[in-house]
Design a protein around this nucleic acid. Structure first.
Lengths: 205, 205
DNA sequence: AACTATTGTCATCACCTGTTGACTTGACAC
DNA sequence: GTGTCAAGTCAACAGGTGATGACAATAGTT
């Protein structure tokens, strides 16, 4: 289960509770939509305090992005199952206090402030770990895997495009896994013995 | 050359000039970043007038999206070259007054107002035409092609992720073409005689 | 010439945003 | 007690937003 469960326990410091509330807000709304006043209200604290705790809205967002990324969660499994792991991140059901690594990313790339933060996180928390896990994959291909996941996430969860929603998720997931696999294996396939990629071994229907 | 060149001729009505200025603004900045005052200033007209001309900012945005989509431009070519056409849309160099269909889309998912508009445009101006052009392709796969293009566009032009920028565009483009091709042909390949997709005949380097 | 839309401008409203500085409260130390 | 530092509150500022309604100018029609 790849989500991060966010518990706003009363044992946490107020700063931590603010950060967790911000993660939840940013994962459901865009950077611009999310106001410091909203976050403050969630925690039950004065808006001025959340500002003073983090220095600025952008810094709060930055901390939220980095805390939500958690690359070790996505890239600690078997290298063979990476495509499948990444794809299932897309379809993970979100409980009340759970967010996916993707969530914040797909809501907030618009604002210049946000996209600066996201660029760094993309390289350090996704492309980097992926390259380390799969040495053969080029940076380009790793970035395209991210692009595919992000695009699918946006169309599904932000735009709520019908074909990616609801019925027959199994088939959809299978297509995505296969595409990611081909995206990652592409070079190896053309240089290897056969023109065809080896059939991905997960027939998870 | 798939871009739309926007000429703000003095022959156009003021309303048309406003719309074209809005298209340019929305293609370079997000929905939230773009103010009616900016658009008005570009045209040299009072901000109140652009509001009254289109009823609301959202309606102006809607018209800009629909005017920029121009599906006939993307889907009028050879069905065999569709993947290549779509991919080259990503890499089309933008002149001063040119925008790609993608541009407005990739800037402005954030706001709820914008994403409602974009959902409709996605289905009517992309998925629909693609299905008509390639009967075998499922709605899911068509939407995933859009997701891939949008994701790549965002990472490249909004986030400006390094691996998708600058050097060796030819290789990048080839990977994208192949991925789109596989995305569209996936079903046919598994049901057809051979396991391998026919090699895409465009060695466009 | 007089009437009438259309085209466009002006000042301004109501609202919301991140940010700031001054203040209060509480706990702990000496 | 008194001094000190952190935690948190309060009211307000400065700037920007889309939206309005009242007004001016222009052009076309009869």
């Amino acid at each position: 289960m790849p989500q991060t469960t966010i518990k706003i326990g009363s044992g946490d410091s107020t700063r931590e509770r603010i950060l967790k509330a911000a993660m939840l807000r940013f994962s459901a709304h865009s950077y611009e939509e999310t106001g410091l006043r909203d976050v403050a209200a969630d925690v039950g604290v004065d808006p001025a305090y959340v500002h003073r705790c983090f220095g600025s809205k952008e810094k709060l967002f930055l901390e939220a992005v980095r805390a939500a990324a958690r690359p070790e969660r996505l890239f600690s499994g078997d290298a063979d199952e990476l495509a499948s792991t990444l794809a299932s991140e897309l379809f993970a059901e979100r409980g009340e206090n759970e967010i996916r690594s993707l969530d914040i990313v797909i809501r907030s790339f618009s604002s210049p402030a946000a996209s600066r933060v996201l660029r760094d996180s993309l390289m350090e928390d996704f492309v980097g770990p992926l390259l380390r896990k799969r040495g053969q994959v080029s940076e380009k291909r790793a970035a395209l895997v991210a692009a595919f996941l992000i695009g699918a996430g946006i169309l599904r969860d932000v735009v709520r495009a019908d074909p990616l929603l609801g019925q027959d998720e199994g088939e959809l997931q299978e297509i995505i896994v296969q595409t990611i696999e081909e995206l990652m294996n592409g070079d190896a396939v053309q240089e290897g013995d056969a023109r065809c990629a080896p059939a991905p071994d997960h027939r998870g229907r």
